[in-house]
Nucleic acid binder design. Structure first.
Length: 273
DNA sequence: CCTAAGTCCTGAGTGC
DNA sequence: TGCACTCAGGACTTAG
């Protein structure tokens, strides 16, 4: 579920659920690790604390409380949902029990996600947040010249470059393919051969496709749901993702598929150069 | 058997 | 040889 638009959608759903000020009664962990160990302090440090807000940084969710931050990454299959008693599911790893009786469940079957605690004032130093690149929707930071310069001299595939969270955050395997198609740029193009003009086109399309997807409530494939339980709708707007063999929406040549940067990739070898 | 929305780690390679 | 860095590929896990 989780590239930037999906995480942003979950963030908005959690904000609605928490409202202005929700009180945590208790957090329950159903296991000690997902991809990495979950610090046991999470079981007690948030007791009787107030949730002040929810933020997104890259593909991470940050739940702010007066005792510190609950950091969450959804991995490939992470979801948050309201779960009444009796609505427990396999792979529910964490429950946030609110004082008003509602209960939020974090479910992540593949366990590629992350739950961590960040003490007050330690956000900047957190190893997972420290090395992140600019937000793609930050017009001041993610500029054509920034992308052009950071790609200069690099031999990696352009698709790998825009999926590298140190270069720009939030772009994953779906939106990278969609942004490259819209930009008429090949995913296999060497990043170092990107011109400033092409960087400007690509930056524009990355922003546009992410913004459109946020408006659509993200993309629902497999079992992604928004935190409120609704579907996203952007999957109906995919132009290349998982459409190998179908005609290119632009020139009708059958779309080509190959592994690029270790991930399945579909593009038009006629239009994208 | 294959594939899947992500990230981290390792080892090989390069240039100084 | 060694250091610093880049890059490709594998590993993690469950479900369909």
């Amino acid at each position: 579920m989780p590239e930037l638009p999906e995480v942003e959608t979950v963030k908005k759903g959690l904000e609605l659920i928490f409202g202005k000020r929700s009180q945590i009664a208790q957090i329950k962990l159903m296991r000690g690790d997902i991809r990495s160990p979950i610090p046991p302090i999470i079981k007690t440090v948030f007791n009787d604390r107030t949730i002040k807000g929810v933020r997104r940084r890259a593909k991470y969710l940050l739940i702010d409380t007066d005792a510190g931050i609950l950091l969450c990454h959804l991995g490939m299959t992470g979801t948050w949902r309201l779960a009444k008693i009796g609505q427990e599911r396999d792979h529910d790893h964490c429950y946030i029990i609110l004082k008003d009786g509602r209960r939020l469940a974090f479910r992540d079957p593949r366990r590629f996600g992350l739950l961590d605690f960040i003490a007050p004032g330690c956000e900047e130093k957190h190893p997972r947040l420290r090395a992140l690149g600019p937000e793609p929707l930050d017009v001041k930071a993610f500029t054509p010249s920034y992308l052009f310069e950071i790609c200069r001299g690099r031999k990696i595939a352009l698709k790998s470059a825009i999926m590298d969270q140190r270069i720009v955050v939030g772009v994953g395997n779906i939106y990278a393919q969609e942004a490259l198609f819209r930009s008429r740029l090949s995913p296999t193009k060497r990043a170092g051969r990107l011109t400033l003009e092409q960087a400007a086109i690509l930056v524009g399309h990355i922003r546009k496709v992410l913004t459109e997807a946020i408006t659509a409530g993200g993309s629902t494939i497999s079992d992604f749901r928004q935190a409120g339980g609704d579907n996203g709708y952007f999957q109906h707007n995919f132009q290349v993702y998982d459409r190998q063999g179908e005609p290119c929406p632009n020139c009708k040549t059958p779309l080509h598929s190959a592994v690029v940067g270790g991930r399945g990739t579909t593009w038009c070898r006629t239009c994208q150069r």
